[in-house]
Amino acid sequence: MRVTAIALAIGLIGTAAAVQAQQITGAGATFPAPVYTKWGEAAKAATGIELNYQAIGSGGGQNQILNRTVDFGASDAPVPAEKLESGKLLQFPTVMGSVVVIVNLPGVTSDQLKVTGEMLADIYAGKITKWNDPKLVEMNKGVPLPNLAIAPAYRADGSGTTFVWTSYLSAVSPDWKEKVGAATSVKWPAGAGAKGNDGVSATVANTKGGIGYVEYAFAHQNKLTTVQIRNKAGQFVKPEMASFTAAASNGDWAGAKNFAVNLIDQPGAESWPIVSATFVLLPKDPKDLVRSAAVMKFFDWAFKNGDAIASGLEYVPLPEVVKTSVRAAWRAEIKGADNKPLY
């Protein structure tokens, strides 16, 4: 009797799992990992789709999806069009985030210091080396700027954050673009490297006169001293949700091929200049149709219900119009063997 009951119970669990839980696996970018994890937890209850996401880095995510060892890859930097073509991949954005500048200056409070993009590029190029540099002093009358060496800290590990940051420096400084350029890791002309957002912020915290760049969520949660940056419209903006959203809505989403929209240094008086989207890569020739469909179902659920979770973690949700065109792309691009759209 008891044995039968146990067998029955096991059988029931087995069937339940087979019917309900659809596992999907993803790998890649570390930047959106917290929101993917939270979405995964919430979606499991709502849709029965169980997400297993491994934050192994954007480069690793691209490698894994090209080898088709995961159901989707994730990358902070948009993948070049020809690589998407050859790898038969569809790229779409999921969420946006921003990078902010943090400093360690005695007596200087958050958002008190004002800088321009050119100055940041000069600081990271080792051209502005003292905090009482005439350029900085002129822009910050009333701020106590000491005669202290500027110690720039950067991400030593290859990272999407560095890609966004160097893209910004390249956008505002032709000199930076020519000499250094933008990538997940670059040849830094000055400063010292540390591992991860926590490494950079700890290096800045340890070094008087330190300056660094981290993801906004990290700066916000740890109450780090941020600075105002002058945007393309010539306005100084504070790093906050409103200025990120302004930048996102000013992006040229319609004109961007493969959704590879450039949100760096956008026009608009309110726009924070260092905003970027993070992307998911999905095979256009799915091997496992059920799992591929589940990936789209998962992100569809996240687009509909996940905005509050994303904002809670200091990410910027996608504008509604972008979500609609992502869904259209799914329908047009990802088809099963019988040419029927999976989504």
Binding site: I56, G57, G59, Q62, N63, L66, G158, G193
Partner: peptide, 19 residues
């Protein structure tokens, strides 16, 4: 002065290196 070692640069750069 800051520097780098072989083991450390491999650990840092490996995740963002494309196949």
């Amino acid at each position: 002065g800051p520097g780098n070692t072989i083991a450390s640069i491999v650990a840092l750069e490996f995740p963002e290196s494309e196949a």
